[in-house]
């Protein structure tokens, strides 16, 4: 079967690639585009380690076909910091020790960014349910939830 040519935008840069019809977005990100910040922990959409933002919506890139990115705008963890400056969420995760092994961290950061983009003033319960699609086995989520809530507070104050 012929490969599909895809033109898309990833982290504000135009990207073109060829993919098989069955290739997942995650496999193209990792194996073709060297964007290995998105992780595969389950491959079935249950863990959120491969979370990316597609046209503003949070998706598991392991459940998305690479061909679907045609004409879209994709954000991955590699595009979260700008000009060497960490995003507020990245900074807060570091300061609050909201990561241990770090393998789930890119996914949590993308999911948290998507949450605050949608809802800049979430309650603890809203944070917990929004992030329920992301598994973390190290932290018990405590410091992650606190970090996200603090960033939301900081944003409110600076708004």
């Amino acid at each position: 079967m012929a490969k599909i040519q895809v033109s898309t935008n990833i982290n504000n840069e135009s990207v073109e690639y060829l993919c098989e019809p069955h290739d997942t977005m995650l496999s193209v990100l990792r194996n073709q585009l060297d964007l290995t910040g998105s992780k595969e922990s389950c491959g079935s959409g249950d863990c959120g380690s491969c979370s990316v933002i597609l046209d503003g919506e949070l998706v598991c890139s392991c459940l998305m076909l690479a061909a679907e990115a045609e004409g879209s705008k994709l954000e991955t963890i590699e595009g979260m910091s700008e000009g060497g400056k960490l995003h507020a969420l990245q900074q807060k995760f570091l300061e609050k020790a909201a990561l241990q092994c770090g393998i789930c961290t890119p996914g949590f950061l993308m999911a948290s960014k998507a949450l605050l983009d949608h809802n800049p003033t979430p309650t603890e319960t809203e944070v917990r349910f929004w992030l329920a699609g992301n598994l973390c086995r190290c932290t018990g989520y405590d410091k992650i939830v606190k970090a996200v809530l603090e960033v939301a507070d900081d944003m409110k104050e600076s708004a």
Partner: peptide, 12 residues
């Protein structure tokens, strides 16, 4: 802040 932190929050 952990010495390996910045690489972990940027996916590197």
């Amino acid at each position: 802040v952990r010495p390996d932190g910045a690489e972990k929050v940027t996916g590197r």
